[in-house]
Every structure is written in structure tokens, then in C-alpha cells.
Design a protein around this nucleic acid. Sequence first.
DNA 1: TGTCAACACGAAAACGTTTGCGGTTCTTCG
DNA 2: CGAAGAACCGCAAACGTTTTCGTGTTGACA
Lengths: 350, 350
Amino acid sequence: MKQKPTLKLIAKELDVSVSTVSKALRDSKEIGKETKEKVKAFAKLYNYRPNNIALSLKNRKTQTLGVIIPEIVHHFFTTVISGIESYANEHGYNVIVGLSNESFKKEVINLDTLANGSIDGFIMSVAKETLSIGDYHHLHETIDQGIPIVMFDRVLDNMDCDKVIVDDVRTSQQAVQKLIGNGSKNIGIISTKDYVSVGRLRTEGYLKALEKNQKDVNLSYILKIHDEFSSEDNLEALEDQISDFLSKNKDLDAIFAVNELYAVTAMKVARKLGLDIPHDMQVIGFTDGVLSKHAYPPLTTVSQNGFEMGRTAARLLINRLEKDREEIERFETVIVDTDIIERETTHKSK
Amino acid sequence: MKQKPTLKLIAKELDVSVSTVSKALRDSKEIGKETKEKVKAFAKLYNYRPNNIALSLKNRKTQTLGVIIPEIVHHFFTTVISGIESYANEHGYNVIVGLSNESFKKEVINLDTLANGSIDGFIMSVAKETLSIGDYHHLHETIDQGIPIVMFDRVLDNMDCDKVIVDDVRTSQQAVQKLIGNGSKNIGIISTKDYVSVGRLRTEGYLKALEKNQKDVNLSYILKIHDEFSSEDNLEALEDQISDFLSKNKDLDAIFAVNELYAVTAMKVARKLGLDIPHDMQVIGFTDGVLSKHAYPPLTTVSQNGFEMGRTAARLLINRLEKDREEIERFETVIVDTDIIERETTHKSK
DNA sequence: TGTCAACACGAAAACGTTTGCGGTTCTTCG
DNA sequence: CGAAGAACCGCAAACGTTTTCGTGTTGACA
């Protein structure tokens, strides 16, 4: 096991000073041609690489992005990470991930332990519990310390940071409009509680679509799922709520669900109730993941373009990081495009 | 924007030396009660936290694990990461992820950039391309440098490192045995090319099961999917190969697939061919993910317990990291248990 | 009053870099 | 031949810690 070579080691071996070695390797013109070559050859031979930690300390930059997400076993979040990683790597940054598991406390801890020099900036999506209790002191504090944050998907309005979102209202409106265009009369929505911004906004889009088409709002057509924490864990609870909902509203002929899990679960329940999809009931989901693609029947869904969101978030963050201290640029909120991917849970548009 | 306080700053403010501050905060008995209290109060007030990077440099430990996986948009890998993160966090470690995208080159780069001081050890699953070309110099080199690696799932036999795997042969044999027990006569397998160890081993288990039951091996019942890279991307290719396979082997009445994507794709194709599942054809997959759970019908599958694998891998790595240099312990290969989760693509066992 | 231990604290080195500045040596020109 | 200027290189500080060792001040005790 050979130890990693350091400048000091090379210096001693070659009988020059540490600074000479450093300068030689960085091709400084202060150093003579011969010495340079000697040093470079030696460095190559021993496969020298500068120690990242030392560099970080010196430069007060770690070239590392902290990504904090509610859960990682989730297609949308992983595509976002993919995007972040892709852009970050292209620009010489690494990515360190923290999982909040939708818990406020874990989110705080994660922010705290990473903010102590380990990372240059954060990219995050806020935990449900945090949204629910509305305590954002940890976010304000890290921003106060000069560590920039970029929020995506689940963002906070009054936060001094860049944001990456989709136009939830407009997109949802389009999705519901599509259902209406396809002839659906009674459209239900399966959403989240209102403190989850995306749930609130998508519901808003749903309402707007109804309004635009002069349709009355039937409050019993609106289901707001109660799930504080990770959703994969309490599937039965989810199924029960949806089952209840569908049984009580037999006249529904279309469902708009604010995520794909709700959508496929709704389909499963509907099937148990003897409904044929899309004949008896059309379904559109939100978030295009594996579930939608491989569901039976394949689910028509709104694609959020997670990869693009990730790349955008990374771009915003890195841009800000590499700005000079005083180019205090205003914070930006970029809206990434969505697409409706038509599969087989809606009627074909002509 | 307040700057992060450092020892130096506190020292100056309180008119004591840096070392005094450091000792006071660590409750050294060298420091007087009064001074201690003064320092601690001040530190608390200004929310002092030691700088991680400085600590890393001093201790030559980063308290960070590098995780390198082929792709992150993949349920199995994310559950493993979840497990790693869970154990790592409990023990004061952070996790930094690198994606190889199944590419040899990216794997090398990732290893290289992280090995320069950023992390204390690696947990990884080898990229398909790496397996296919069989070049492992980068792995040997990092191990040579004293950076321990723990491999999981896709592991290499002759590598000096800890490993975490499932008993692929035995598990697959059990799965196929179940199919046989349920009355299937002609069982096909959808696997990967042999250089992917899990594919090879699971095929071996399949063959063993046939042998144990004195059934002849029909080579045309064995499909080895050709997909060098990320599998989600070329779904059509996958579908074509499977479609071909099923059409040529009309007498198949059961399928064992080495991952869930192959399994659900096979179901989709079978349905197109007019087969009813499980009546005309039983299916068992490997790797219990969202797909299996939400497939139609819900897929009977072998659960690899990714979370457990992750925790185990992290445990092995951290154990080794915290061992004294000279407790040269032999490398360990731990086999985590699997379960067959019966859902609706197989007949109910009585 | 002199001695010694206990106590409280500071100086400095170390981790591995980069970089401004200062110091040699050698060339070259007046 | 003397001096100016290249050309080449080393010193030391800095990033933020921890820790060893040393030092000065007290107090107790003989």
C-alpha cells in the first residue's frame, strides 16, 4: 500500500522546496524549464493529485453541492438528482446528498452538518413536515450565513433564493381541460393537503379549468390525501382514502391526480370497483415516472422534466457561487416546461 | 450576512488565545471554570460550529462515504442508498454520490476525483461496461492507496474488499422451484449477458432447479437480453427482444425474470399476445420495487432487501475505517437474506 | 522565606495547499 | 570591470483546527 504523495514528499525526494514543486506543477514561469520537467515527471510517475481537502481549506470553496430531498426512493427526485449530478460534474462539482425523510428535524440536522464547510451551496425540496409546521428558521439561517440555496418543486414563497418550479396551475388546468375536451362530465381531483404548495397550486389549476368551462365545483369531488410522511410506506391508508372517495362519488368519470402514485392507486381501486379505464373513467397523473410508464394501462401523465429541473437548479446555484461577492444579483425563479404524455388512460384526441 | 465565526475570531473577541478557546469548547480540564463558561456562552451566542474541512485536514478523515452506482433512477439502487444513508448518518458520516451511468470512463473519473481526499472509503456497484471490458485497474489502484471499497450486488470475485450480496443461485433456484411446484412445465428465463454476475448466477440457479427436478434444459427457453447501458432508455429494444422470445416459444407457461423491468415488460408483451397472467403464464421477478408492487397484476417477486444491503455495506465500511491500521482483518462477504413476495402473478400456494 | 506542585493559559507545529515577496546566481551591457 | 536586470528558487503566511509542550502565576507547606 503506497501512501498518497504530497507536495512535501515530492519536494524532499527531489531536494527542492514545496513551493517550487507547487509552482512547477502549475506551470508557473517562475520555475526553470529543467526543474519543471523533473517535477512533472516525478509527479506523473507517482500519480500525484492535489489533496482536495487542503484545497478546500485554502480556497474556502469545496466544489461540492449539498442536495437535500425528502426521499430518494422516488422517481421524480432521482431524475432531478440525475440532472443536478450531470450539470455539476460538467462543471467540476461533486454532489453530496442528504435525506430528510419528510422530517423537519432531519432536515434541520442535514442543513446544519453540511453547512459547516462541507458544501458551497444547497439544492433542496422542502420536507412535508417542515411545510406543515411552517418553521423555516434553519433555511433563513443558512442563507444568512452566506450559503445560497436553490429550491425546486416544493418551494417557499418568501425565501431569498433561486427557485425552479413548473407552472403547476397552468399545467394542471391544461390537464383537466384535456379531460373535459375528451368528454368527461364529472372530474375528481386527488390532491394533497394545502400546505404542500404543489398540491394547492394543482388544485387551483383544476378549479380554474372548471371555471373556464362554466362547470360547477362539487366539493365532494375534491380529495385531499392525508399523508404526513413518506408515501410508499402507508399504501393501505392511501388506498382506503381513495376507495372511500370513489365509492361515495359513483358519478365520477375522470380523475386528475397530483402525482403518479395517487393516480395508479386510483386506477387500482377503480378496477376493483369494476370500472374500465379509460372507458368508464379517464385518468391523468402528474410526474412522469416508471409507475406511469409501466402501469396497466399505461398512464397519461404530466411530465415535469425532472432532469431538466435538476440541471437548471445546479446551473442557478453554480452561477451564483461563481459570481463575485458584490454582483448581488436578484433572485430568479425559473419555470421549466411540462408536457402531457398521452398514453392509454385517456381517450385518443383526434 | 454574518460571517461564520472561527476560533480565531472568538479568541480575539474574548482576548484569549486560540488554543484556549479550542480547549474550553472541548471541556479540557486545563482551562479554568470561568474562562470555559465565558467561551462557551460566546460560542453558543454566535452559533459556532467547527469547520469540517479544517477538521478533515487535521484528522486526515473526512467522515464521508463515497457511493458510486450505475444509475440512480432505479428503485433498487435508491433503496440501497437509503440504507447506506441511514447507517452512515447514525454514525456521523455523510454520503456523497457519484453516478457512473454504466460507463467505464465515468466510473474511473468518479473514483479518481473522490479519492483525492474527499472521502474515506467507497461503496459501489460496478458498471456494466466495466464488467464487460473487464478492466479493473482503477479499483485496484484505489485499494492500493489504502482506500477501502465495499462492493454490493455487482461484485468482483478477485477483489480485496468486503462484499454484500444475495445468494443469487439459491434464491433463483427457490423461485423457479416455486414455479415448478405450482405446476409449470415449460419455464423460461429472461436474464442478462453472462458478464453481469447477477445474471449469470441467477441463470445458474434456474438451471439447478431444472436439474433438481429432472427437467431437460431447453436452450431456446433462455433469453439473455442485450443491453449494454441504462435500461430505461431503450425500452423498445427490450420489448422487441422479449416479444421475439415469447413468440418463438409459444409453449412457455412460466417466466422467471432476473429483474423487475424484464418481468413487467414480459407481462406487457404476453398480454399483447393474448395470454392471461397467471392463468396462461406465471411470472416471477427479481428485485422488489415500485414496479412490482404497482404492476397489473401485482408481480410476485424476489425481494433483495436493498435497504438492508445498504446498511450492511455501510456497516462493513465504517467498521473497517474505524479499525486501527494494523488490525488487518480478513475481508468479509456477507449474504443478505431474500424473501419471495407472493402477489398475483403466480398461483396461490395452498 | 524558599520550594514545589497545581493550575491556567499561550506558543507553535501539524494537516496539504497556494502565492507574494525576497534573495541568489548568472548573464549582459555600458 | 561593475552594475543592472533576468532567471530561478525558497521563506513564510494563510486557510481553521487540535494538541503537545512550555511558561508564568498562584498557593501551600516546611
